[in-house]
Design a protein around this nucleic acid. Structure first.
Lengths: 203, 203
DNA sequence: AGAAAATTCGAGTAACCACTCGAATTTCAT
DNA sequence: ATGAAATTCGAGTGGTTACTCGAATTTTCT
């Protein structure tokens, strides 16, 4: 007996392919929620894409809400959102690089934009996630802007907290417009324009 | 016979209370779509709020899609969105005034933010509305920024088109964050900050 | 090999969805 | 007042939803 033998319960871990299954399910759910939103997307649709019965899907994620939360967590892993504090890179370069990268993954952007706005509706399971995410982002960016200010590289009169809030807002808003009119809206251009206004060139 | 008498068809207009009914239905639908989104909101919910059967509701708006379109049209009427070109007032004052007004009507803002993002999903009936709205807004603001530029009141190096795009994006993004954290986010403050960066004070 | 746990699924549930149909009731111009 | 149109609704229709249950199958550990 390798496990605690209380009674006869011999707990066994998940089987070999389990983790991979979970990942393919999450990828499918990512697509579905991006294309139809949380309320508009169905478990059946997700199951079909994986080639699994809906019942089996529910074996891995016991409810639709759980599936959504797992998708959001996975999104953080993919985009490395959990570690935005790579202090090696400057704020500006970091943001622009990410924005450039996002141009190649409209699906991820779509998921984010769609679920974010949907989460402000009544009792949406993603609400806490996005509220906390925004708080975290604002704090993180405010810190970076404050550092720039300490180096005299922030335009006088600009408040780091306000700049952080505005940067997040601008970025999201640009992405929304970009999704609706990819040929007319340039996210990176908009962000560069804002940085040019707010942060001064190195001395 | 006051009408064309082809055959015996005697068309009669809607009854007296019809228009008022339509308006109360639209108000209820506005609430429902704001609270649950288009896909998440149900005709039954709307009908219940009006105190009408679902069938009667469908007499006024023959489909859910029609109801949504009517709600969006009504939104334009309420906010006077159809006439953004009140040239008497400056761009800055006009935007700030509207933003201040919006603080008192979170429901209208919520409807806008929720449906806008939802409209980027597959075959959403509101997609055309929002795409065109953004185009119109960008063009209108670009014109106003260009006017400021002609007066030497636009910061050198700022492109009017880009400023218009960014203003719309910033505004929407701020509203989203405001809905999720009303006490921490100040839409007007953010907009003022942007204007301070972009437009120069009068000579 | 044997047994238990993990995985799969078919069938079903109860609720809800947008929408239709046919018929009753109310309004209103004549 | 009367007849036709506008309005209302009850009762369905076919479909989908998330989710449950019980049982069969597959994997893995001993």
């Amino acid at each position: 007996m390798t496990t605690k033998d209380v009674g006869r319960a011999a707990r066994r871990g998940p089987y070999a392919k389990s983790e991979e299954r979970r990942r393919t399910i999450l990828d499918a759910a990512h697509e579905v929620f991006a294309a139809h939103g949380y309320r508009g997307g169905s478990l059946q649709d997700v199951a079909d894409r994986v080639g699994l019965s809906q019942t089996s899907l529910l074996h891995y994620f016991p409810s639709k809400r759980d599936l959504l939360m797992a998708v959001l967590e996975r999104r953080d892993e993919i985009t490395g959102d959990a570690f935005p504090d790579d202090m090696e890179e400057g704020l500006v370069d970091s943001v622009i690089r990410t924005a450039l990268f996002n141009e190649n993954i409209p699906g991820v952007v779509e998921l984010y934009i769609v679920l974010c706005a949907e989460s402000v509706t009544d009792s949406h399971p993603g609400r806490v996630y996005f509220t906390e995410r925004f708080e975290r982002l604002r704090k993180s960016y405010a810190l970076r802007f404050a550092e720039l200010a300490a180096q005299g590289r922030l335009r006088p009169g600009v408040d780091p907290d306000e700049a952080a809030m505005s940067l997040v807002a601008l970025w999201d808003g640009l992405q929304t417009q970009w999704l609706l009119a990819p040929d007319e809206v340039d996210v990176v251009k908009g962000l560069r324009g804002y940085f040019n206004l707010v942060v001064l060139p190195e001395p």
